[in-house]
Simulated scan of single mutants.
Amino acid sequence: MSAGQNPVVGEAVPQDVWDSLSQDANAVLVDVRSAAEWAFVGGPDLSDLGRAPLQVEWATFPGMSHNADFANQVLDALGGAAPSQAFFICRSGARSLSAAQTMAQTFAARGETVICVNVKEGFEGDLDDAKHRGALSGWKARGLSWVQS
């Protein structure tokens, strides 16, 4: 990889992500939201696929300071095995895009070919007219499996 060149990160809607995870046992979903979001909002449930999302914070609540060790924590969560595809999800798709870009560069620098994809719409999606999330778009609104602790 030449200097200044960035790997391309794809984007996919939640249903396409679920379909890909269903068809590719070597694909992973990385939930980059904060621990507070996991606890109070819930998250994608992949138990029907016999696995769970990796949970690695991109930024920590309450200050939402960037997790400088994010890439290493993802690599640790993967246990040294590069997935075929890595899907990244956050609340609405912004943090997860940055996370996907970071990991695409990390995998490329390690000489690993991993397709990194941002989950468009995220877990909760866009704000509706009442300024609420979770009903208009996103993983939950699309009727995909999720769980709240």
Rank of each mutant, 00 (worst) to 15 (best):
A3F: 14
Q5C: 05
N6W: 11
V8Y: 02
G10P: 12
G10Q: 14
V13Y: 07
V13M: 10
P14S: 13
P14C: 11
D16F: 01
V17N: 04
V17H: 02
W18R: 15
S20Q: 09
S20Y: 02
L21A: 11
L21C: 09
S22W: 05
Q23E: 09
A27S: 15
L29N: 14
L29E: 06
D31H: 02
E37K: 12
W38T: 06
G43T: 08
P44V: 05
P44A: 15
S47K: 06
S47A: 07
L49M: 08
G50K: 08
R51I: 04
A52E: 14
V56G: 00
V56M: 01
E57C: 02
T60W: 09
F61W: 11
F61L: 03
M64S: 06
S65T: 11
H66Y: 03
N67R: 08
N67D: 04
A68F: 03
D69Y: 03
F70Q: 01
F70A: 00
Q73Y: 05
Q73E: 14
V74E: 00
V74L: 01
L75A: 10
D76F: 04
D76E: 15
L78Q: 09
G79I: 06
G80F: 12
G80A: 05
A81V: 15
A82Y: 14
A82P: 08
A82D: 06
A82H: 05
S84E: 10
S84F: 05
S84R: 10
Q85C: 11
Q85W: 02
Q85E: 11
Q85Y: 06
A86K: 05
F87R: 01
F87T: 01
F88I: 00
F88Y: 09
I89Q: 02
I89Y: 02
C90L: 04
C90D: 11
R91H: 15
R91G: 08
S92N: 03
G93S: 05
G93T: 07
A94Y: 07
R95F: 03
S96V: 00
A99D: 04
Q101P: 00
A104R: 10
Q105L: 11
T106G: 04
F107Y: 10
A108T: 10
A108S: 08
A108G: 06
G111S: 08
E112P: 03
E112T: 05
I115M: 10
V117F: 00
V117H: 01
N118A: 02
V119M: 11
E121C: 00
F123P: 02
F123A: 07
E124S: 13
E124V: 08
G125Y: 07
D126T: 13
L127S: 14
R133G: 04
A135G: 12
A135T: 14
L136S: 14
S137Y: 06
G138M: 05
W139A: 07
A141Q: 11
L144Q: 05
S145I: 04
W146A: 13
V147F: 04
V147M: 11
Q148R: 09
Q148V: 10
Q148D: 03
S149V: 12
